Simulated assay, not measured.
Amino acid sequence: ERHATFGLPEIMFGLFPGMGAHAYLSRKVGKAMAERIIVSNKTYTAEEMYDFGIVHEIVEQGEGESAVRDFIKKSERRHSGLVGARRASKLVFPLSLEELNGITELWAETALKLTETDLKVMSRLVAAQGRIADRLAAA
């Protein structure tokens, strides 16, 4: 079963998804659902994330690059329409630099309040992720 995690590490340390993730999710799924996803600490399946409209396609492990190439190839024929639709979406749900800067500043203020214990736990998590990545690369 494929899983996608959204918000777990940040919420665990009293942070929230920064760098536009909160704004992006709110625009994609609505404010109430975005809040629910962010604060739930739930691990969502890839299928759930697809159903939310957060991901566009689900592929088997190792098929990502091929899927991206196929998407690009299919999209070339309808490039003008896709660009127009994206521009219209930006008009309907604008995301200003001011909003992104404000979110980033709030995140930075919150991050500066992390405790020494939080930082140690984060370091252990990063090391564990590195070991997992090394094992996957060696396989």
Rank of each mutant, 00 (worst) to 15 (best):
V29G: 03
T5Q: 10
I38R: 02
V126Y: 07
S89K: 11
G14A: 12
S66Y: 15
V68L: 07
L136W: 01
F6M: 15
S96E: 05
G64C: 03
V68I: 15
I132F: 12
H22K: 14
V126M: 09
G30H: 11
M19T: 01
L95F: 13
E60M: 07
A4R: 05
G14N: 09
H3E: 04
L97K: 06
V55G: 01
L125H: 07
S26K: 12
V83H: 09
Q129P: 00
F93R: 06
K28I: 02
T43C: 13
A46N: 06
R77W: 01
R27E: 04
A108M: 04
E63T: 00
R2A: 07
E57H: 09
A67G: 05
E60Y: 06
E98G: 03
A137Q: 13
T104D: 14
H79W: 06
E47D: 08
K90M: 05
L114Y: 11
S123H: 13
E98A: 06
H22V: 03
I72E: 09
K74I: 00
E1H: 01
D118K: 11
A21V: 09
A34L: 08
G18I: 04
I54H: 10
K42A: 08
A67W: 08
V126A: 03
M49N: 04
A85C: 10
K74M: 14
G7T: 12
V121H: 05
D70K: 08
A138L: 08
V59K: 01
G20D: 07
E65N: 06
E63H: 15
Y50E: 08
R2Y: 07
F93H: 07
A137I: 00
G20I: 00
F13N: 00
G62I: 07
D118W: 01
M19V: 03
E65G: 09
V92D: 00
F6I: 15
K28H: 01
Q129K: 14
